[in-house]
C-alpha cells in the first residue's frame, strides 16, 4: 500500500474514533460514579443538533461547539434527576433520553428549517478548521483529553472520590463524600463529553445534522468502555480500534470486489462494526469488571 493510502487510513481512523473517544470518556465518568449511561446516544445527538444549529445561525463553529456542550449538560441533568433523585431504572431512563433526542431535534428543525430530516449544509468555512489537513481540531482535542481524564481520575481528590463512590458509596459517604452531588457532577461531565462527540460529528466530520446521525455510536462507545474495563487509556485504544474498522470498511468498499466483479453489498459493510461489538463483548466481558455500585441508586441509611 502506498504511503498516501496508509496516511489517509490513519487520519480516517482518528476521525472515525473521535466521537467515540469523547462519548466513551463521558461514559467513563458517569459509570465510574455508579450511574449506567446508556443515554450516550441521545446526549451525542443533543450535542450534534445544537452544534449544527448554532453554527449555522452564528456562522461560528466555536460558538456551535460550546452550545452543543451546554445542551449535553442540560440533558444530562434531566437524566441525572431521573436516575439519582427519583431512582429511576437507569437503563430505562437512558433509553427514554435516546428516544427524546430522536424526536426533539426533528421537531425543532422542522420549525427552523422546514425539514424534519436534516439541517441545511453548514458552509465549509464555518466547519471546525483542520489542524493538519484532514484532521479537524476536534480530533486533536479528543486525543488531548485522554491524558487529562487519566490525571483527573487517578491523581486528583475528585477522581479518588469518584471511584470510591462507584465502588462503595456507603463507605465513601461515611468518609464524608457527598455521594449524591458527586454523581450529579459525574453525569453532567458525561453529558458534556458525549455532546462534544456529537458536535464533532455534525460540525467536524460531516457538515450538517441528520436525524439519528449517531447511528449507534453511543452504544459502540459504551462497548468500547466495557472493553477498556472503564479505564481512560484503554478507552482510547478501544475507540481507535472501532474507528479503524469504520475507516477500513469504507476503504475496503471501494477496493475489494467479489469474484463476480461486483462490489461488496453495502449492507455487509454496514454491519461489520455491529458484529464486532457483539464479538468483543462476548469475548472480553469475562475478564472485565464493572464498578461495584454500577446501576444501584444510593439512599442514605437513616
Amino acid at each position: 500500500m502506498s504511503e498516501i493510502v496508509i496516511f489517509s487510513l490513519l487520519f480516517a481512523t482518528i476521525r472515525s474514533a473521535t466521537p467515540l473517544i469523547f462519548a466513551a470518556l463521558g461514559g467513563l465518568f458517569s459509570e465510574r460514579s455508579g450511574v449506567i449511561n446508556i443515554a450516550l446516544e441521545g446526549l451525542m445527538l443533543a450535542g450534534a443538533f445544537t452544534a449544527a444549529v448554532v453554527t449555522l445561525q452564528t456562522e461560528n463553529p466555536y460558538f456551535g461547539f460550546l452550545a452543543g456542550l451546554a445542551a449535553g449538560a442540560v440533558l444530562a441533568f434531566v437524566y441525572a434527576v431521573a436516575c439519582i433523585r427519583f431512582e429511576a431504572d437507569q437503563v430505562v431512563a437512558g433509553m427514554a433520553i435516546n428516544f427524546l433526542m430522536i424526536g426533539l431535534p426533528a421537531l425543532i428543525s422542522g420549525v427552523i428549517y422546514d425539514s424534519t430530516g436534516s439541517t441545511p449544509q453548514i458552509p465549509l468555512e464555518n466547519l471546525q478548521p483542520s489542524v493538519v489537513t484532514g484532521l479537524p481540531w476536534g480530533s486533536i482535542l479528543a486525543l488531548a483529553i485522554v491524558p487529562i481524564c487519566w490525571y483527573v481520575l487517578y491523581k486528583t481528590p475528585f477522581g479518588l472520590r469518584l471511584r470510591s463512590v462507584g465502588e462503595n458509596p456507603a463507605a465513601a459517604d461515611a468518609a464524608g463524600v457527598n455521594v449524591i452531588n458527586l454523581r450529579y457532577t459525574a453525569v453532567i461531565i458525561s453529558g458534556i463529553l458525549a455532546a462534544a462527540g456529537g458536535a464533532f460529528l455534525s460540525t467536524g466530520q460531516s457538515s450538517l445534522f441528520t436525524k439519528q446521525m449517531t447511528a449507534g455510536r453511543g452504544f459502540i462507545a459504551l462497548a468500547a468502555l466495557i472493553l477498556a474495563k472503564w479505564r481512560p487509556v484503554p478507552v482510547l485504544l478501544a475507540c481507535l480500534f472501532f474507528g479503524f474498522t469504520e475507516a477500513a470498511t469504507i476503504t475496503i468498499q471501494g477496493m475489494i470486489k467479489l469474484p463476480s466483479g461486483e462490489g461488496i453489498p453495502v449492507q455487509f459493510i454496514e454491519i461489520i462494526p455491529y458484529v464486532l461489538t457483539i464479538i468483543v463483548l462476548a469475548g472480553f466481558i469475562g475478564t472485565s469488571r464493572a464498578p461495584k455500585a454500577l446501576g444501584i441508586p444510593y439512599r442514605k441509611e437513616n
Binding site: F86, M95, I97, A106, L107
Partner: peptide, 21 residues
Amino acid sequence: SKDLGWVLQAVIILFVASLQM
C-alpha cells in the same frame, strides 16, 4: 410533525420510571 410521538413516548417512559419509587 409525527416526531412529537417520540417526545411523548420519552416523557411517558421517564415519568413511569421515575414514579416507580
